[in-house]
Design a protein around this nucleic acid. Structure first.
Lengths: 236, 236
DNA sequence: ACAAAAGTGTTACTAGTACACCCATGC
DNA sequence: GCATGGGTGTACTAGTAACACTTTTGT
């Protein structure tokens, strides 16, 4: 029990406060366990207390008074995966009264991490990775949240240069196309894809060698601010 | 002072809790005071206590434990304007540590109300309407929030049928075009505008009469779900 | 030489834009 | 008739999609 000053101006002894948590949907690409195709995965944490003890849930926790929202999301991500996000963006604030037995509002972020680093990560206790499209039975309303995060990822990749968040510094056009195909779930024409992307890329001059065919050129993301829809942080 | 149970699991006597508030950016169209052109306005509330006592701020208040986020936003809107929103959508959760002397996270909604009803509304004490593009010097980070809400309004009107939120049930194409022109801040070609809109409208068969020229047809919004980007509530 | 993937050229289609023009009404 | 805004036709443009074709490497 802690003595708290009631700043809401209308409290009473029976007045519950609303708890505030920050959670993060962390996306990475890994091969699908059956098909081997690049697929969107995400890490979940097994709950070790009620409510929903034993169920899988999005990583997160209560917001610390000294911490910004995005910092909280990023720290959760680093604790859960040992990685630094390549893209981090607020998803939505979920606050239905009935989403938890106690009253919790969750501000949810979504993030992209690189598959290359991801593969080197040591396993974290109580954390397991799942194919994003196949998760269900999560704690709270986290099924809905994951589905909505996927919707946003798939929408945003079509008009904003976020695909690089899944890739290393240098990459081939085929790798970039694989990212789009994994996220959108359909094949893209390599010829047209090339023409659409080439303007936003910097050629490194080098090629990826050692394959059994013509060596593809390596590119780097050109951060020239081409016109996109901006998130709040980006508009400031 | 109220006795509160510390549910965060890491509290101490010096541990401040984070307060949670819900605010609403309410947009309506009114004639510009100088030009007379339809313009985006919004109501603000004068703060009657510190911090920022005497400054204008977005209407809102602490989230009640029994209330959903959107309900809280809507109740604030009804208290402030006496109106029912025609469109209500979550904007963003603002939580920078330094945005207020005490620690407050604000979940902000934005809403559209109809100008017709709006004109009949009785004045509410401490509430005043301002031209949205001209507000500045607001309390907290509310200048930034208003600017971001305008950015979202202008972006969303280009790909989502929200303009009807400003209009009565039946309207002419010229009225609909005026809404777009007011929001986007530029003239639109009437001929092309007609062709772009006509597919999403239901003709009522009636016309607006009594003008000194050819009477324009009256239309109604066709709620057939054409493909748009969906907000979270709409995806469920 | 052949397979495989990189990369180019060409055409068709679509959505948006600019703008000339006709239509229907009140005065 | 004439002014005014409602409403139609049409040509131009840019971006996308489909797909045939050429290039360059390893084996």
């Amino acid at each position: 029990m802690t003595l708290e000053i009631d700043r809401s101006g209308h409290g009473s002894a029976t007045d519950q406060r609303v708890d505030l948590a920050v959670s993060t949907v962390i996306f990475a690409l890994r091969p699908h366990p059956v098909t081997g195709e690049p697929t969107v995965w995400l890490p979940l944490v097994r709950r070790i207390r009620e409510p929903f003890e034993g169920r899988w849930a999005l990583p997160g926790g209560p917001l610390q008074p000294h911490e910004d929202l995005a910092s909280s999301a990023q720290h959760t991500l680093e604790r859960t995966t040992g990685l630094t996000p390549n893209h981090l963006e607020q998803l939505y604030a979920f606050g239905r009264v009935d989403r938890s037995p106690d009253r919790v509002v969750s501000i949810v972020y979504w993030a992209l991490v690189r598959a290359e680093e991801d593969a080197q990560v040591l396993p974290v206790p109580n954390v397991e990775w799942f194919v994003a499209d196949e998760v269900s039975g999560l704690a709270f309303d986290h099924d809905d949240i994951v589905e909505y995060a996927l919707t946003r990822l798939r929408a945003k990749i079509t008009y904003s240069p976020i695909a690089y968040g899944f890739l290393p510094e240098e990459f081939t056009l085929a790798q970039l196309r694989e990212v789009y195909e994994a996220v959108l779930g359909r094949q893209l024409d390599p010829a047209n894809f090339r023409r659409q992307m080439i303007g936003r890329l910097q050629a490194t001059g080098r090629c990826l060698e050692g394959l059994s065919h013509r060596p593809p050129a390596l590119y780097r993301h050109d951060p020239t601010p081409s016109r996109t829809t901006l998130t709040f942080e980006e508009t400031r």
